[in-house]
Design a protein around this nucleic acid. Structure first.
Length: 225
DNA sequence: CGTTTTTGACCCGCGC
DNA sequence: GCGCGGGTCAAAAACG
């Protein structure tokens, strides 16, 4: 069963959401105040992926980082991103969600990843988490094809956590999805790793300007296709 | 028929 | 050393 790849008309609002996603992501890596560590995009200018989808559902968009901790969604102007997103958000204090998620994941994900990869070294993986409002849809369509490989109930949450892996061969990007334990209306999605390929769904893609580090929507299809 | 989901077992690191 | 919590594997079932 495939997710809502086509069951939902997510394209209509995508032009709005894409900028939004990107805009939020930039501050995401910086950690809202600390030295811009650029944990995610900054260090990996490659394969883009967009953790969002089902446009209509995206109500609140928060970004979490495994090192900075909470990164409250930047309310207004985001330098660099083209269009300032129109999100009427911030009703949710990010501090509540992040510590839990971030702490838990950073410690365990590391060991687990290391074990799985068979390499002990501090192989830092790009990890990014989003918390979006989605009442009925759990798995947001981000254009990639995911294969579920596990499901676990977590200690401090009544909701199970689902584990997905990118089904594209050679791509080891993982993603875990769970409903917010406090707000069942929200879904926390965590991505780990970077896709080594473009979206099979050929949704949107973007390019990053090496000099400025900014992102630009380059089109609707893969380059050269 | 190929791919994905399901689900329990297994494994591993960490804290006590 | 042991138990707990969390992440992954793998076999079988389900699905399109």
């Amino acid at each position: 069963m495939h997710m809502a790849l086509s069951s939902r008309s997510s394209f209509a609002a995508a032009d709005v959401l894409l900028p939004a996603a990107m805009a939020y992501r930039q501050p995401c890596s910086g950690g809202g105040g600390g030295p811009a560590t650029s944990s995610y995009f900054g260090s990996r200018p490659a394969a883009p992926f967009f953790p969002f989808g089902t446009a209509a559902q995206l109500d609140v968009f928060e970004c979490l980082s495994d090192e900075g901790g909470a990164v409250p969604a930047p309310p207004a102007a985001v330098p660099g991103a083209f269009a300032t997103p129109p999100p009427p958000l911030p009703l949710m204090p990010a501090e509540r969600v992040v510590p839990d998620a971030a702490a838990g994941y950073s410690s365990h994900a590391r060991s687990a990843a290391a074990a799985a990869a068979g390499e002990g070294p501090p192989r830092r993986t790009d990890r990014i988490a989003f918390r979006v409002r989605s009442d009925d849809e759990e798995v947001l369509d981000d254009g990639y094809k995911w294969r579920k490989y596990g499901k676990k109930s977590v200690k401090n949450s009544p909701n199970p956590r689902n584990y997905y892996r990118c089904s594209t061969e050679g791509c080891s990007v993982k993603k875990r999805v769970e409903r917010d334990k406090d707000d069942q209306r929200y879904v926390v999605t965590m991505y780990e790793g970077v896709h080594n390929h473009v979206s099979p769904g050929t949704i949107y893609y973007a390019t990053q300007d090496a000099a400025s580090g900014r992102f630009f929507v380059a089109g609707m299809h893969q380059p050269g296709h």
